[in-house]
Every structure is written in structure tokens, then in C-alpha cells.
């Protein structure tokens, strides 16, 4: 048992299917091996605009981070990373079918995950999981886990904060299993409990005299 609630796993990348299958929502994961980053810039450049990645991502690994590190070019062509954190993943749900289908990704590491619907319709089909960074500000802990920057690509095209980074990581974690291969979302479950106490707090507070467009959307619903 971990110090939190779920079990704790030390896994090697690329992830084996039997490793992925045993992950349940709420478990904690530490990853070792090669991983690569992809967020707005890479998704658009690679998936929408159809540019082939400069290296074979599938051969490298099946773990992709929705992230761009705090890193710089310390000398021409040589990059270092000080700190790492993923960005909010809900806005990338649209890219998941293509990413999982074409690039064989089995673990997406983001921040806060995506909707249960995406897990059920996309992740479940591909036997993939969604992990989330924690804290969310554990940048120094995650930064320490980066043992080597293997390569940085598309810096010219996308800028350094959207480039494709490949890393060798050692015990990158703790990461929380947010979406498991059965289509369950940890946060959806948590929010079910939170909503009960949240809605009770609205009791007795009168509604504003002037509404806003979209206000019929109830506060207990997910906004994505």
C-alpha cells in the first residue's frame, strides 16, 4: 500500500499490457524509461497538419506526457530540464482517438484527466490509461526524475514551450491513475461525493438578479 489510498506501482516504459491492466483508478505509479511530450503544438503539427515526427515515437515508447518542461538550450543543440509538470488534459480529448490509434500510446500523462466518456469511447478500446501528475506543483520532484534529455524536435516550428521533447526518466512519480482501462475516472467518482456537499452550500443563497448566458449549466456538471 502507498501512503495515499491506492496501490503503488513501479513500471518500466514502454509499458507492458499486463502492467497497464493491473492499474486501478486511485493507484500511484512511478515510471522509468523513455517518454515523450506532446501538447497543443505537437498535436496540431503532427495530428492535424500531418507532419511525421522526426523519430519513430512508437519505437521509442508508448507513454506520452501532455507537457512541456521548464528547460532551456544551454548550448547549441544541448538541452537541460529543471522542472516538469503536465498541463490540463481535457482540452486535448479531441486528439486522443488519433494519438492512441496511430501512435500506439498506452498511457497519457496529463493534468486532471479527461471525461469518463473519453475513457469509455477511446481509451478502453485501446487498452490505454490516463495518469495525472500530482500536487499539482511537484515540478522539482518530477524534474529530478529526468535523467537525460534524449532529444528536442520541432523547436523552430513550434517554439521551445511547444516542442517535442524525449526523455529518459527514472521513477517519474507519483502519478495518479485517473482513467483506467475499464473506462473509470477517479475524478468523476470523487466529484460525485463533492457535489453533494457543494450543492448544499448553495441552499438559501438567492440567485443573482441578472443572469449570464450559459448559467442554466448547473455548477455540479463538468464544464468540458
Amino acid at each position: 500500500m502507498s501512503q495515499g489510498q491506492g496501490r503503488e506501482w513501479q513500471l518500466t516504459c514502454p509499458l507492458a499490457s499486463n502492467d497497464i491492466e493491473k492499474l486501478a483508478m486511485g493507484d500511484l505509479v512511478y515510471l522509468s524509461g523513455p517518454v515523450y511530450t506532446a501538447r497543443d503544438g505537437v498535436y496540431k503539427h503532427m495530428l492535424i497538419d500531418g507532419n511525421a515526427p522526426p523519430i519513430s515515437l512508437q519505437e521509442l515508447t508508448n507513454v506520452s506526457l501532455q507537457s512541456s518542461p521548464a528547460g532551456v538550450e544551454v548550448s547549441p543543440g544541448e538541452f537541460e530540464v529543471a522542472s516538469l509538470q503536465a498541463t490540463a488534459g481535457f482540452r486535448y480529448a479531441q486528439y486522443m482517438p488519433q494519438l492512441l490509434e496511430q501512435f500506439g500510446v498506452k498511457a497519457v500523462v496529463g493534468k486532471a484527466g479527461m471525461s469518463e466518456q473519453v475513457y469509455q469511447e477511446v481509451f478502453q478500446k485501446h487498452g490505454a490509461v490516463c495518469l495525472t501528475t500530482m500536487g499539482y506543483g511537484l515540478g522539482a520532484i518530477y524534474g529530478r526524475a529526468i535523467k537525460k534529455v534524449l532529444g528536442v524536435y520541432w523547436v523552430e516550428e513550434l517554439g521551445i514551450s511547444e516542442a517535442l521533447w524525449t526523455f529518459e526518466v527514472d521513477r517519474l512519480g507519483p502519478l495518479l491513475v485517473e482513467g483506467d482501462i475499464h473506462g473509470n475516472s477517479f475524478f468523476t467518482q470523487v466529484n460525485h461525493d463533492i457535489n453533494r456537499q457543494l450543492m448544499a452550500l448553495y441552499d438559501g443563497l438567492k440567485a443573482p438578479v441578472y443572469g449570464r448566458i450559459g448559467e442554466e449549466q448547473k455548477p455540479e456538471t463538468e464544464l468540458f
Partner: peptide, 25 residues
């Protein structure tokens, strides 16, 4: 409780290594 402990640990490591406390700076 576990996550808050990690945040405190992260704060220590950031100073020890002189690295940004969060990857989104």
C-alpha cells in the same frame, strides 16, 4: 494528506537543487 506531504517535500527539493518549484513556471 499524502499530496500535501509531497508538496512540502517538493518545496525542500526545489531549494536544495535550485530548480523551479513547478514545471509551469
Amino acid at each position: 494528506h499524502f499530496i500535501l506531504g509531497q508538496i512540502l517535500e517538493n518545496a525542500k527539493l526545489a531549494v536544495a537543487d535550485a530548480r523551479p518549484m513547478c514545471g509551469d513556471t
